[in-house]
């Protein structure tokens, strides 16, 4: 059974006004336990609208969202259960920090779950350590931290609820290459260690290639492509047609093909490209 499944979801914004816009036009997708799924698509493709349905922030016009096989909109109880189990971390989560210390901010979620004080304490300390901050940070004000640190505190606030599905909307936006790599590593580690599902939105195809098991490409409120990184990235021309950036190495391969060099399948990593080019050259006696 999929941990989270979306059945024929339809949703429109500003209904009954001249600005009415269909944001989701019948989306169905299953998220399996333990997967890392990347959601890509240009602005306005419906990614964020879909995410907000996954923990019931938005209620679909029609269709349903099932958490562990049960509709999240069945009762108040199922919705509450879903909110605790599907942790959603918005874009620029650091803008949502609100409490006077890091400790209190991170403790907010578990406290709302009604956990005993000891358990809350343990979870706060664990999740702050998990995102790579030392215990010295616990009593600091989150507003005195650097941008990258704030983001990690905000993510710790979601991790402390130990959600079975962790959702991150553009977690690496605005970070420098080092901060970005640390965060991607954190996503991968979290998934490895807990076996929990992670869903994240990204515009950076190279980041996606690094951590995702599965890629979903959205376009105009529908799922345009779905598959493993390799299945999706090997269709470089189709991605470009959807207004997406293809990984830089993929564009090298597309241009090589246009220049008359057919190297077979389209590579997307430097290592894969190197192997493929060496093979091409040695077969042609050009090494």
């Amino acid at each position: 059974m999929s941990v989270l499944s979306v059945k024929n979801l339809i949703y429109g914004y500003s209904k009954g006004t001249p600005f009415e816009k269909g944001a989701l036009k019948g989306v169905s997708v299953d998220f399996e336990k333990g997967e890392i799924v990347a959601l890509i698509g240009h602005t306005g493709s419906g990614k964020s609208t879909l995410l907000q349905h996954l923990n019931g922030l938005l209620k679909p016009d029609s269709g349903d969202v099932l958490f562990e096989g049960e509709s999240i909109h069945k009762s108040k109880q199922t919705l509450r259960n879903c909110r605790f189990n599907v942790g959603l971390c918005f874009q620029y989560p650091e803008q949502q920090l609100f409490d006077s210390t890091v400790y209190k901010d991170v403790a907010f979620g578990p406290a709302n779950m009604g956990l005993p004080a000891e358990e809350i304490d343990k979870r706060v300390k664990d999740s702050v350590a998990y995102v790579g901050l030392s215990e010295d940070y616990l009593e600091k004000s989150p507003f005195d931290l650097s941008g990258g640190e704030k983001r990690r505190v905000a993510i710790a606030g979601v991790l402390s609820m130990e959600p079975k599905v962790l959702i991150l909307d553009e977690p690496t936006a605005g970070l420098d290459p080092v901060g970005k790599n640390n965060l991607l590593k954190l996503i991968k580690d979290y998934n490895n260690k807990t076996g929990n599902t992670v869903i994240f939105v990204s515009h950076n195809m190279d980041d996606v290639a690094l951590v995702a098991d599965k890629v979903i490409v959205m376009n105009d409120g529908e799922i345009a492509m779905e598959g493993t990184v390799e299945e999706v990235y090997s269709q470089g021309e189709k991605l470009a047609g959807l207004g997406l950036d293809v990984p830089e190495i993929t564009s090298v391969f597309i241009e090589l093909k246009n220049a008359g060099f057919d190297l077979g399948k389209t590579e997307y990593t430097v290592d894969g490209a190197k192997e493929s080019i060496i093979k091409f050259l040695s077969e042609g006696g050009l090494l």
Partner: peptide
Amino acid sequence: MGLTVPKPLELAYQLQKNGV
């Protein structure tokens, strides 16, 4: 310094290590 080089250049370096 925590920065990267453009991927096509990185690929060229990798190929150079293999004599291309």
